[in-house]
Every structure is written in structure tokens, then in C-alpha cells.
Design a protein around this nucleic acid. Structure first.
Ligand SMILES: [Zn+2]
Length: 323
DNA sequence: CGCGTTTGACCAGCGC
DNA sequence: GCGCTGGTCAAACGCG
């Protein structure tokens, strides 16, 4: 198989949208403007240019740039941008509500597709497409599982949640990785807390949570129905700690400092540069920030070694950025 | 025994 | 209001 061939077909996979309800969630919204089946999603994905949300995803609080509103495809909709890293196509696409064009082809065979979805829950709760995506706007202060409720043993699940509170949805990043194993090693310890059947898909979706106490990072793993070789991993939240370095035999493991590290923040910047939309006046960055030169077979390895996007990104950046 | 997985039940949001 | 669906809980279980 030539890398080229894979490229094309992988891209397709990446944008199947309709088939994957999953994507609907990730890509917070589907363009209802167009009446095409595939085009709608494809277009936005392949052509997107907003990076504002990106920064938020990582750590807006410390990021210099304000969230863009460009991607607000829907009126009054919260800003949402999605990025997809395709480990196979080698193209990084930023998906958002609609505009712009960004594609960063790197190496023919290797690339990471990831998508980020962040929501800036502010005022309106208007939703672009209420299809399957959930409202990410509201924030739930859930400090803990809190049992402070009149909990009685009558029901198994007494809901401590209060009406007013809504669940906090953190930025999510989706990775598409070609792998035979569902659960990829990423350097962190995860505890599986659920598994659900995916609609219209024979493959289940697994829910994991970082085992580190204070860390609230979650991730979902599911195999693409369209392309069983592809595993879609969605991360939600940021680790508040270093990776436990549980990677055995993996010298590639990078010691990424916890959130807030300079290197960490560099990632978003990168994107800003790519997109002229913003105040992209930074330094020109190297387009090939993702996988540098790995063989196709190593793709998943890459992911496994680097694991989280957060980890991956900084690394690449560091490598490509002119220190 | 500690830790992680399995699994059915529960819950909340949304569409009809 | 009901039913569907995604997401979560937690008891039971398995394993080192
Ligand atoms: Zn963590």
C-alpha cells in the first residue's frame, strides 16, 4: 500500500460525519446550510481556519488571544472549533463552524487527526444544530461527586446534582489513529468507567477517566465503524499533572510539564500563525509539526508514545519551532 | 488487598 | 409526555 492511496481513502474516513454520530458531538455542529450529504461536514472540516477556540481548549486563561468568533456559524452560537488530526492522512484540519481553509499536509503516511471542541458558554444557549451534539455551554462546578443530598438507599443512583447546575463540558480533542488495539498507551493511567454501544455502529464506545486524584480528564475510545482500523480517541479536559511515566520501554516519552508550561502554550500559537485570520503575525512555523517522518506502521506508535494531544503538540512544536 | 474492568441501571437532554 | 440516546454511577467481579 502506498501512502498516497491511503491518504485519499483515509481522508474520506475522516469526514464521513454522517455515519458517526460521534462526530456530531465532537464537531459540535453540522452545517445545516448545505443540503449535501457529505459535503456539509467535509467542507467545514477541510476548510476551516479558526484557532481561537483552540487556545481555549488548552488554556485560554493564559492565552494572549481572545477566542475568535469567526467560527460562529450559527447565530448566537457559542464558538466552536474542531480540529482533526488524522494519523493516517497526514493532514491537520481545523474544523469550525464554517470558514477558512486549513490543511497541513505533512508526510504522506503519517499524520494525526484530531478535533477539538470547545464551548464558551456565555450567554445564549442557542444551539446551531441540536442534532446529537450536546450543549457544551454551561458549566457545572462539580467539585466532587458530592453526596450531599437527601440520598436514601431507595435508588441506586441518587442524583446529587442540582437542577440549576449543568454539567461542565471541557474542550475535547479527538484523535483518529490507525490501530488494532482500542486502548492506546498514552502515558497516563485510566480507569474505565463505562461502555456504551454506539448507535449505528457495531463497535462500543468506552469511557475512561484519569486515575489521578485531582485530575478530571476523561477520554472516550471508539472504533470507527467506517474504518475499523481507525480508533477514535476523544480527550476531554487537561491533565493537572505530569504523565505518570508509566510508559515502559518507551524512551520517546517526553516529560511534559503540567498545564501552563510555556511549551504547552505554544501549541495554539502555532495554529494562530497558520491562520492569518487572527493576528497571525508570529513567526512562520514549520508546517510539519505533527509526525515528522515515521512510517505508516509507526503511526499508532507515535500516538501511543506521546499519548495526549497536549503532549504531542508541545513536542512537535518544540521540534519545529525555532527555539 | 488494591486497583482496574465489567455491566446493568440510572440520569439528563433532546426530538417527536 | 414519552422514548431515545449519550453519559455516568457503582456493585460485582477479575487479576496481580
Ligand atoms: Zn490526568
Amino acid at each position: 500500500m502506498s501512502g498516497d492511496d491511503r491518504d485519499h481513502y483515509h481522508q474520506r474516513d475522516l469526514f464521513f460525519d454522517d455515519d458517526l454520530s460521534y462526530f456530531s458531538s465532537i464537531f459540535s455542529h453540522r452545517p445545516s446550510l448545505d443540503g449535501h450529504g457529505l459535503d456539509p461536514l467535509l467542507a467545514p472540516i477541510m476548510s476551516s481556519t479558526n484557532y481561537g477556540s483552540f487556545e481555549q481548549a488548552f488554556d485560554l486563561s493564559s492565552l494572549p488571544l481572545p477566542p475568535l468568533d469567526v467560527f460562529g456559524s450559527c447565530e448566537g452560537e457559542k464558538s466552536v472549533s474542531d480540529l482533526v488530526i488524522d494519523t493516517t492522512t497526514g493532514v491537520a484540519n481545523n474544523v469550525n463552524g464554517g470558514s477558512g481553509v486549513v490543511g497541513t499536509p505533512i508526510t504522506p503516511n503519517s499524520s494525526v487527526s484530531w478535533s477539538s471542541n470547545e464551548a464558551t458558554g456565555d450567554n445564549d444557549s442557542a444551539r446551531c444544530r441540536k442534532d446529537e451534539l450536546k450543549p457544551d455551554e454551561e458549566v457545572l462546578q462539580q467539585s466532587t461527586k458530592g453526596d450531599q443530598h437527601g440520598g436514601d438507599g431507595s435508588k441506586k443512583l441518587s442524583k446529587p446534582r442540582k437542577k440549576g447546575e449543568k454539567r461542565l463540558r471541557e474542550p475535547r480533542f479527538a484523535f483518529m489513529t490507525v490501530s488494532e488495539v482500542d486502548h492506546l498507551e498514552d502515558g497516563y493511567r485510566w480507569r474505565k468507567y463505562g461502555q456504551k454501544a454506539v448507535k449505528d455502529s457495531p463497535y462500543p464506545r468506552s469511557y475512561y477517566r484519569c486515575t489521578t486524584q485531582k485530575c478530571l480528564v476523561k477520554k472516550r475510545v471508539e472504533r470507527s465503524f467506517q474504518d475499523p482500523k481507525t480508533v477514535i480517541t476523544t480527550y476531554e479536559g487537561q491533565h493537572t499533572h505530569n504523565s505518570p511515566a508509566t510508559i515502559r520501554g518507551s524512551s520517546h516519552m517526553l516529560a511534559v510539564p503540567p498545564t501552563g508550561s510555556s511549551s504547552f502554550l505554544r501549541y495554539p500559537l502555532m495554529y494562530q500563525q497558520t491562520s492569518l485570520n487572527n493576528s497571525g503575525q508570529q513567526r512562520p512555523m514549520n508546517p510539519s509539526f505533527y509526525l515528522q517522518n515515521q512510517s505508516t506502521s509507526l503511526q499508532q506508535l507515535q500516538l501511543a508514545d506521546y499519548g495526549l494531544l497536549q503532549d504531542i503538540v508541545p513536542t512537535f512544536i518544540n521540534n519545529s519551532l525555532p527555539k
